[in-house]
Design a protein around this nucleic acid. Structure first.
Lengths: 146, 146
DNA sequence: TGAAATCCAAGTAAGTTACTAGGATTTAAG
DNA sequence: CTTAAATCCTAGTAACTTACTTGGATTTCA
């Protein structure tokens, strides 16, 4: 039940873009350096986010990436689903696929996987990038950061 | 964010044991046949559950496995954690380990992983094997099964 | 023209998953 | 006392996934 680096790095990158929202295109290099991630690898992740219409890019010198929408309109759920696919603790509760359970009729474990799936989705769909930025701002205001 | 077959098969096996609770030891062979799982593989999983004190075994002919506690006292969470380890979408929110995040100070993604972790745990700790048995019983009473 | 950046496709080492193989041991029943 | 049914135990392993790396081609600003 772990997210892969796709989802984890991807959210970090999107958070950085949210922090710099409105400042024009941000080069991947900066994000990769800030977050200690291989730039080439991050490239692959952000390309998925671009296909998912969550970021735009500007090529060439002075280019970079920017969010397609204000941070308050982008949820963690959109980001994670773009990178990792639909959330499902078991394939049999993937919304997209039709039920591929071998069992005919009732399966006792399926409702469990559905509840887990739904609760994860509820959490990640309720958090926006703006929330994350705000939480960091609040934290730093308290002078609790190192 | 998928469970491995450990957690999925393991819960199915434990559910079968719950269904047959009080009927003496149930051989793994039956469960493996019922659920279409390799018996040898299931052996390995149930051995973990035994170490986790969730099942007892009786060796020899007429032997098998049985729950150590009534189904109402065994949660899905205990089973999944025994087989898959602590739930954590990212290692940095594993309760057991100390914070192994490279970042000093505030990390914006950590609260997200914590919320996901907590919501999953809340779900799986709130469902007992007895609940699963009851849900199946209700379903079958409605005559909806094949 | 050069540097900075995105874009793109392929390869790959290491790790994980989901088993299989091959037995040793224990126990009830005939 | 033998046999069959079962748990117990340790290795091995093919296939897959992960988390990258390599090596460029292309675009754009200055």
């Amino acid at each position: 039940m772990k997210l892969s680096t796709k989802g984890r790095y991807g959210l970090k990158a999107m958070f950085e873009l949210a922090l710099n929202d409105g400042k024009g295109p941000i080069p991947l290099r900066n994000i990769a350096d800030n977050q200690n991630i291989s730039e080439h690898y991050l490239e692959q992740l952000i390309s998925v986010l671009k296909k998912g219409n969550l970021v735009n890019s500007v090529r060439g010198s002075k280019g970079g990436y920017m969010l397609t929408k204000p941070p308050s309109k982008i949820t963690v759920g959109e980001i994670i689903r773009a990178l990792e696919g639909d959330i499902a603790p078991s394939d049999c509760v993937l919304d997209t696929k039709h039920n591929n359970c071998i069992k005919e009729g009732y399966c006792a474990t399926k409702p469990v996987w559905e509840k887990i799936r739904d609760s994860i989705n509820e959490v990640i769909d309720s958090i926006t990038l703006a929330d994350m930025v705000e939480d960091q701002r609040k934290f730093k205001k308290q002078g609790l950061y190192v």
